[in-house]
């Protein structure tokens, strides 16, 4: 008994250190240091390259507030994030439900593979293949005109819907996976209990299954919303002129304009806004989960 207590009291951070160290060392080197450098850059007037003159300034952050363009773009990016997340729920949740509760054995594995496939394909390849599908005279246009008796023009390329389609395709696996995990953990007897108490399948869905799968929905939404708000690849390639979002502006600062300090400042404003949104939503989300 005394021995057991002694062992119990020794349990603490110390024995866990060798396990934690590699991950935190890696995080420090690979993420924290570059990010710190970026924080540093965001307060500079210019990059300290090629002996250029530079000094500290708040101007990069002030730029966000002085030009309405940035906040407008940030707002449309937040809306994009929200819409893509919603579509991912609409598309991903039923798929996760079927995977977790309807399919068994090999058919489940096969469908699962199809869901995960976008994960394993290169992002650019994925987006350009959508371009082939969505453009005028593309696969979708040709296929629909081959079937339909009248002539229609489907040219979704370089439009807002194209951006949504591309982003939903890229991010829906997150929603399927997180929802699948929570749905699978729901015991089938809970569904049967609900029905034995007189609840229709729909009532069981709304009152039992969806509340119990909230943690998965929330985790999926967080995994999707945050990167989509900062996304630039899909908006640029599939959105064309309409695809100007907060993420593409940041990208421009880094690869086109070479105004790294402004790009860094805009990134940290995005990070702050996202953190504020998550913090505001936390009490609601915690109650739901």
């Amino acid at each position: 008994m005394a021995d057991q207590l002694a062992i119990g009291s020794r349990r603490g951070l110390k024995p866990a250190l060798p396990l934690l160290l590699p991950a935190y060392l890696w995080l420090t080197v690979a993420i924290f240091l570059p990010l710190s450098a970026m924080v540093f850059f965001s307060f500079m007037t210019d990059l300290p390259l090629a002996g250029k003159e530079w000094s500290f300034t708040l101007g990069n952050y002030a730029a966000f507030f002085s030009q309405s363009l940035y906040s407008t773009l940030l707002f449309s990016s937040l809306r994009l994030g929200l819409e893509v997340t919603l579509w991912c729920v609409v598309v991903g949740y039923p798929a996760a439900y079927v995977l977790a509760k309807v399919l068994k054995g090999r058919s489940r594995e096969a469908i699962f593979l199809l869901v995960i496939l976008p994960f394993w394909s290169n992002g650019l390849v994925r987006i350009f293949s959508w371009a082939m599908v969505l453009r005028e005279g593309g696969i979708l246009d040709t296929a629909l005109n081959a079937v339909l008796p009248f002539k229609i023009n489907i040219d979704l390329m370089y439009s807002y819907p194209a951006v949504i389609i591309g982003l939903v395709h890229s991010y829906v696996p997150y929603m399927v996976l997180t929802c699948y995990l929570t749905l699978q953990a729901i015991d089938d007897s809970l569904i049967e209990a609900g029905r034995s108490l007189g609840a229709s399948r729909r009532q069981v869905l709304w009152r039992v299954i969806i509340p119990l799968s909230m943690p998965g929905l929330i985790a999926g939404a967080a995994l999707i919303f945050v990167p989509v708000v900062g996304s630039f690849m899909e908006p640029r390639i599939l959105g064309g002129r309409t695809g100007t979002f907060y993420g593409t502006i940041i990208e421009d600062q880094f690869v086109a304009v070479f105004n790294w300090p402004l790009g860094a400042a805009l990134s940290f404003i995005l990070l702050a806004v996202v953190l504020i949104i998550l913090a505001l939503a936390a009490p609601v989300l915690r109650r739901a989960a």
């Binding site: 049967e192 209990a193 609900g194 029905r195 034995s196 108490l197 229709s200 039992v208 119990l212």
Partner: peptide, 19 residues
Amino acid sequence: PVEKRRIGMVFQNYALFPN
């Protein structure tokens, strides 16, 4: 179907709604 039979059932694992 079960929801229209007006039965009461107690399950082996109780199947209480955890939420």
